[in-house]
């Protein structure tokens, strides 16, 4: 269990949640990044363009 850093809503997470994983908040729709597990910590995910190199 963790709270959305955007809207405060409580999110229920899968057991196999991983650091780096991106989760959408069901309440506000915000994209959240799992920055730690045990206990789970969430932060607003950075906005990343889809771009690529050679």
């Amino acid at each position: 269990m963790a709270n959305c850093p955007e809207c405060g809503a409580e999110l229920s997470l899968h057991d196999d949640v991983e650091t780096g994983e991106i989760i959408d908040c069901g309440t506000c729709g915000g994209e959240l990044e799992v920055v730690a597990t045990g206990p789970v910590e969430l932060e607003t995910a950075p906005e990343l363009e889809e771009d690529w190199g050679e």
Binding site: E18, G20, E21, I22, E33, A45, P46, L48, E49, E50, D51, W52, G53
Partner: peptide
Amino acid sequence: RKSAVKVVEDGKTKIRRGEHSGK
């Protein structure tokens, strides 16, 4: 610079850091 990318692995969306690309 783009130092992180969003990737899909095993059906999960994740952030991978340490990327060396740019626009």
